[in-house]
Structure formats: C-alpha cells, structure tokens
C-alpha cells in the first residue's frame, strides 16, 4: 500500500477483546479511499481463508455511518485495535470515531428484524431449509441483543454475550441463554465454523420464531423509550 495513501487496518471482535476461541474468526476492519481496492481486499481475504472476516469501507461510507452513530463504529471505538495505519488514515479514523454520536437507526433496525422474522415464518409454508432459517433467527437475535445492550447503556458485541446479558437484564427465562448458545451453532455452521448441534425439526423452527417475536416485542418497548431520550440532532447535547 502507498504510505502516502489514506488507509487503516484494525482488528476487532473476539481477537481484539481477547476472548477468542477455536471457532472464532479474525474480524478485520479496513478503511480505504477507492472502491476498486475493496474488491482487491476481498479477493485477498478469500485466498487467505474463511478464518478472515474482512469488512472494508470507503472513507465516505464511514463518514455516512458516523452521521447516524453507526453501531459498528461504536463497536470499533470500544474494542478495536489498530494493526496498520498510514498517518492520514490514523488521523481520519480518529476524527470519525471521536465525533461519533448516539445511534439513530434503532427503530429502523427493529423494523428490519421484524421483516426478517416475517420472512422466516413465511418460509415455513414453502418447505424451507430449516438449518438456514435457524441460522437467520440466530443472527437476528444476536443483532437484536447488540442493539438492546447498546440502548441499555451496556454495549456488548460478542457472539453470545449480548443475548445472555439481555436475558438477565430483562428477566427472561433462564433457559433462553442456554438455548441461544445451542441455536447460535447453526449460525456458526453456516460459516463452516461448527458442526450442526442436532438435526432440527420444523417444530424447533416454529418455537424459535415465537421466542424471537417475544424478544423483538420487548426490544421495541426499549427502543421507543431510547428514541424519546435522544437529543435532537445538531442540538448542543447531540
């Protein structure tokens, strides 16, 4: 890479937090200034193997994300560690992360979670592939957990921790944490990082749809309260 260019490479996720295990991947964040470079980075990452999970953004994309307080940028700010940066890239990244405001897409995310859940329910009538649908439920539940933890003032971005924390915070059924750990194996299996924990049935999927429905309903209540508490953009408190 050109030392005069504007780029930065960070490690984030479990390896940066120091809680990685044998099925963890290496989450790498890269900021660049040309879209063609992103394609090149993804090709290199593919050659390096599935263990590398690369998220590559343009600076303009990152600035757009900062404008709504992107949860991913909060994640980077909280846990990320720079690996390699050009001087211009370091400065640009510091500016973006230091001016990051509160997350402003919480309500929209809940709508998206609802849409995905609705898709999964619809797929049941269409002879769906249960393994895949369970991996989708696991992904949404984790994302809902990350959002829930963030708006509760306890940001957590791990694989299981966000849901486990909300189970405790929202006094949900204790068994849910254990069951979610098992469910998340389908998500990991989708990335070939784990074997399927069991052969799932349609009843398992229907049960998880109901659980996710309850989880999202509770999140919706919390998001309403969070949104009301947000300062108006561009006000002195924002």
């Amino acid at each position: 890479m050109n030392p005069d260019g504007e780029y930065t490479v960070w490690l984030y996720g479990s390896a940066a937090r120091g809680d990685s295990d044998h099925i963890s991947d290496l989450d790498v964040f890269i900021a660049l200034d040309e879209f063609q470079q992103i394609g090149e980075v993804r090709r290199i990452a593919r050659v390096m193997g599935e263990i590398w999970s690369v998220s590559a953004y343009l600076w303009t994309e990152l600035e757009g994300m900062a404008s709504y307080g992107s949860l991913f940028l909060h994640h980077l700010r909280l846990e990320g560690r720079p690996l390699y940066e050009s001087p211009k890239g370091r400065a640009h990244c510091a500016t973006i992360l230091s001016s990051l405001g509160p997350y402003r897409h919480a309500k929209r995310d809940v709508l998206a979670f609802r849409s995905v859940l609705s898709d999964v329910k619809e797929s049941i009538d269409f002879g769906c592939v249960v393994h895949y649908e369970l991996s989708v439920i696991a992904t949404v539940m984790r994302h809902a957990g990350i959002l829930g933890c963030y708006i509760s003032g306890e940001p957590k971005f791990g694989r299981l921790e966000p849901v486990h924390r909300l189970v405790s915070l929202w006094s949900l059924h204790d068994k849910l944490s254990e069951k979610f750990t098992e469910l998340y194996m389908f998500r990991l299996a989708a990335d070939a990082r784990a074997v399927l924990p069991f052969e799932p049935s349609m009843q398992d999927l229907e049960g998880w749809c109901e659980t996710l429905e309850v989880f999202i309903e509770r999140l919706e209540v919390e998001v309403d309260a969070y949104d009301r508490s947000l300062p108006v953009p561009n006000s002195p408190r924002a």
């Binding site: 849409s115 995905v116 592939v129 895949y132």
Partner: peptide, 21 residues
Amino acid sequence: VADGHEAAYVARSRIGRLINS
C-alpha cells in the same frame, strides 16, 4: 425489498434463502 428503508439487512437473508433453494 430493493427500495425499502431496511433494504440491505432484509435482502441479505432473502438472498441467502434464494441461493440455498
């Protein structure tokens, strides 16, 4: 889903479902 507000998030799982099928 292309024009919806939540497009990218919802499309991601719909595309996965399509490919799987």
